[in-house]
Amino acid sequence: MGCDRNCGLIVGAVIGAFLAVLGGILMPVGDMLIQKTIKKEAVLEEGTIAFKNWVKTDTEVYRQFWIFDVQNPEEVAVNSSRIKVKQRGPYTYR
């Protein structure tokens, strides 16, 4: 007992409408749950996951800085000469 073309179109339309209604309901509910979780866990208060990760990370975190020293500032200011710079660094901090 098969389903003809009209039956298939009706079944497809009903399933599509059901999924559209379900998505329309779940999108705001899911968004609300995500916002609630973010407000609860992203705050740096003792007892939250964010606080635990902020106090002690699992990996070492390093910052690197490069400083460029202008070697000819007077010539640049007076004659608009080409800038000569010397790279200092990287300075690495944990």
Rank of each mutant, 00 (worst) to 15 (best):
T37D: 03
A13E: 06
V29T: 14
F51L: 08
Y93S: 06
F65Q: 15
I38F: 11
G12L: 11
V11H: 05
Q87L: 12
V76T: 07
V61G: 03
V78F: 12
G23Y: 09
K84P: 04
G24E: 08
D4Q: 10
W66D: 09
K52W: 09
G8N: 06
G12P: 03
A77P: 00
E60L: 12
N72Y: 07
F51V: 00
Q35N: 12
G89H: 10
A77C: 09
A50T: 11
I38L: 14
T57Q: 10
T57F: 12
W66V: 14
P28C: 10
I67Q: 05
L22M: 13
R94Q: 13
V11P: 08
I49H: 02
S81H: 08
V29P: 03
V29F: 04
S81Q: 06
Y62W: 09
G2W: 09
G30W: 10
Y91C: 01
D4G: 15
I38G: 01
R63H: 14
Y93D: 11
K56T: 05
C3M: 00
K84L: 05
W66L: 12
L33N: 08
E45N: 14
A17P: 02
R88Y: 04
T48G: 00
I38W: 10
I83Y: 00
I67A: 11
W54S: 03
G12N: 12
L33S: 03
V11D: 07
V21S: 11
D4V: 06
R88I: 12
L26R: 08
F68K: 04
T92Q: 08
V11L: 10
F18N: 05
N72C: 07
A42K: 12
R63A: 07
V43A: 03
V76N: 01
E60F: 04
K86P: 03
V21H: 01
K36I: 02
I67P: 02
V78C: 15
C3A: 12
K52Y: 06
G23C: 11
V61A: 14
G47A: 06
Q35Y: 09
V70C: 14
Q87C: 01
E45L: 12
F18P: 00
F65Y: 13
V11W: 08
V55H: 00
Y91L: 10
K40I: 01
I49W: 03
G12E: 09
I15G: 00
R63K: 11
I67C: 12
G23I: 13
